[in-house]
Design a protein around this nucleic acid. Structure first.
Lengths: 221, 221
DNA sequence: CAACTTATCAAGTGATCTATTGAATAGCAA
DNA sequence: TTGCTATTCAATAGATCACTTGATAAGTTG
């Protein structure tokens, strides 16, 4: 007996998750969580907002089912609620970028000059033949939480100091948080300034991981 | 030169699309548009809200890049902005249903008793051997805008009158707008009440279409 | 042209959302 | 117990949003 009330309840419940994605601050937190689970004040510092505000946003996302939390002694660690949520976030981001002209402008301004990039397939092939070095330029904690197999960690701010660690005879491929993270762009520019051939990976760790672990896209009705 | 201002602009632009998904009314409109493009007052009637309000919601979604519009004489026809948007909507719906316990309750209340369902693969196999009849129980206009190959259109309110059209010796499979549309459930109940063996397809037309036309899931960075 | 349909705009009100502030709580360590 | 830290709660003011109403614009038809 299909009643209007229940039908609305369904859309309202879905809209709850939509609301979770409707604030730039929350999206920034979600983006950070896509790299690694983190504690509240850590997220607050990383996103430059007050702890109380961060906590409230996280609770909103928790209510929407976007994130999960676990107590760890005196602090609370938040993580994405699952790979489906990561998929959703990437889908939203991609659709938005594809459709909204403003976003592309914003991205270009933010990333600076475009640097040469390399795709997933080519990277895999070149890794196999061993004629490149893959470098993860994200902060060390994010590398530790997960990284591409065969990558070595050199956070962006240590790059100049550790140039000697990189074999001089091989091209460097840098990757970071994703296509809208400036780290890899910046790393490539600095490497080239130091006379090293370098490119950036067109995607970041979350996209790579999702592609590597073919998550259940099956739809159980 | 990564500046904070631009980074925020990026998230703000994406949040714009999030806001487009943050209202139950808009989601209802989106769900209708997933079936077929429609005119404003048509959508207003179908969703039971004022024309002005519908127009405003549609404009909000247009600004977010979720829908496109074309003038048609005196009226304006809105449609989904592309298959990526359909993907996004289905992803949001699925994640929400998987995560939010409330939604499942709402869905159960709304759909009534569960009826036996059939999956995509089995349907394809049974269609090939020809021992079932596939029936589209949505309104005729939606059937006309697109339907599963081999289906015949029998809108739900004509079902009883047209029982004779269905061969008595074959099982009937009914489908409608999607797993949360009550039409197929109701159709199966009525068919069984009339002594016909019947099941519902576990998914609806939008899901089927998206699976049939493997849309570009590739991510251009 | 006038009458009519369809869609959009503009303004106003009540509701909801956001960020801030300061207080309250939970866990840990002396 | 008393401090200390990390997080959450509660109250607030300001911003934004949703829906209504009545006017306006665009397009069709007589």
């Amino acid at each position: 007996m299909p009643s209007e009330g229940n039908k609305n309840a369904l859309f309202e419940a879905i809209a709850l998750m939509g609301k979770g994605l409707a604030s730039p601050r929350r999206l920034e937190l979600l983006d950070l969580l896509a790299q690694a689970p983190r504690r509240v004040d850590d997220l607050a510092r990383a996103s430059g907002q007050s702890t109380a505000n961060t906590s409230q946003h996280l609770q909103a996302m928790h209510a929407a089912g976007l994130v999960t939390r676990t107590r760890e002694g005196t602090s609370v660690r938040y993580s994405l609620a699952g790979d489906e949520v990561l998929s959703l976030w990437l889908a939203l981001r991609d659709v938005s970028v594809a459709r909204l002209a403003e976003v592309e402008c914003a991205a270009r301004d933010y990333l600076g000059d475009e640097v040469e990039s390399i795709g997933r397939e080519e990277l895999i092939a070149r890794l196999r033949t061993g004629d490149i070095v893959l470098v993860d330029v994200r902060p060390a904690e994010e590398f530790q939480a997960g990284h591409i197999n065969g990558a070595r960690s050199i956070p962006l701010d240590e790059l100049e100091d550790r140039l000697a660690d990189l074999p001089a005879d091989r091209e460097v491929v840098a990757y970071c948080r994703g296509p809208f993270c400036a780290y890899a762009h910046e790393a490539v520019r600095r490497l080239q300034a130091a006379g090293r051939p370098a490119r950036r990976l067109a995607e970041g760790w979350p996209e790579w991981r999702l592609a590597a672990e073919p998550t259940k896209r099956t739809r159980a009705a």
